[in-house]
Amino acid sequence: MRITLSVVAIGVIVSFLALPLLLVFSYALSAGVSAALSAIKDPDALVAIRLTLLVAAIAVPLNAIFGIAASWAITKFDFHGKGVLTTLIDLPFSISPVVSGLVYVLIFGLQGWFGPELRDHGIKVIFALPGIVLVTMFVTFPFVARELIPLMVDQGREEEEAAVSLGASELQTFFHITLSNIKWGLLYGILLCNARAMGEFGAVSVVSGHIRGLTDTMPLHVEVLYNDYEFVDAFAVASLLALLAIVTLIVKTLLEWRYAEEIAASHRH
C-alpha cells in the first residue's frame, strides 16, 4: 500500500502540478533561444514588463506598511471587534478577482460613482495606471497582515513592554524590538504579496482596458499574444512569470527551512 500511495502522490504532483511548468519553458524555447529572446525584447513586451514592475513597486510597499500597522493594532492591544476586523482584512482572499476589478469599475468607471467628475477633471483611473494599482492592492491586501498576525501573537508583548518601561522611545521600540523580531515573517509575506501582485490577471484585466503597449501588464500581454496565436511569444513572456514563480518558491522554501521559528507557526513543517 505504501508503494501504491507513493506512486499515486508522486504521479499527481509531477504530472498534474509540475508538467504545466515544464511545458511553459519547452514551448517558449521550441523555436530556439533567439526567438524567445526577441519576444521578450519586443517593445510592447518591454512596456508590459516595466508596468508590472511599477505596479508591484507601488502596491507591495503600501500593503506591507498596512500589514505592519494592522498586525500591531490587532496583536499588541485588546479591544472589541478584533475578530470582525481580522475577518474583514482576510476578505479579499475570498472574493473572485473579476469581482475585485468590477467594484473599482463601478466606482471609477464612466458610469460609476465618481466617473463623470473624474472625466471632467481629466483624471483617468480605469483603463490607466491608478486603476491597475488599486485592484492589485485590493487583491494582495491580506498577504502581509496574514503572515504577521499569528507570528506576533506567538511572540507576545513582553519584549516591547520591557523596552518601553526601560525608557526606549516608540521608534526605538518598534525598530529594535518588533521589526527585528518579525523581519523574516515580514519578508515571507512580502514575497507572497509580490508574486501575486506581479501575476494578477483577472482583476487587472477588468480595469486595464487592454491597451497594448500602454496598459497591458505581463499576464495581460501573455493573454493577447496567446489569443493572437503567437504561441512562442506568449510562452516566452509566460516563462518570465514562471521564473518569478520558481524564484518565489525557492526563497519561500529556504525561509521555511532556515527561519522556521521566525515565520508564522502555520508554515513549520
Binding site: A9, A18, L21, G202, P219, A234, L241, L244, A245
Partner: peptide, 24 residues
C-alpha cells in the same frame, strides 16, 4: 522538492497556468 512543488499553483500566475494547461 515535491513538497515545495505543491505550492506551485499558488505561485504561478493564473494566466500562465491557463495557457500551459490549455496547451497540455
Amino acid at each position: 522538492f515535491l513538497d515545495a512543488l505543491v505550492d506551485l499553483p499558488f505561485a504561478l500566475p493564473t494566466a500562465v497556468a491557463g495557457i500551459a494547461l490549455s496547451a497540455l
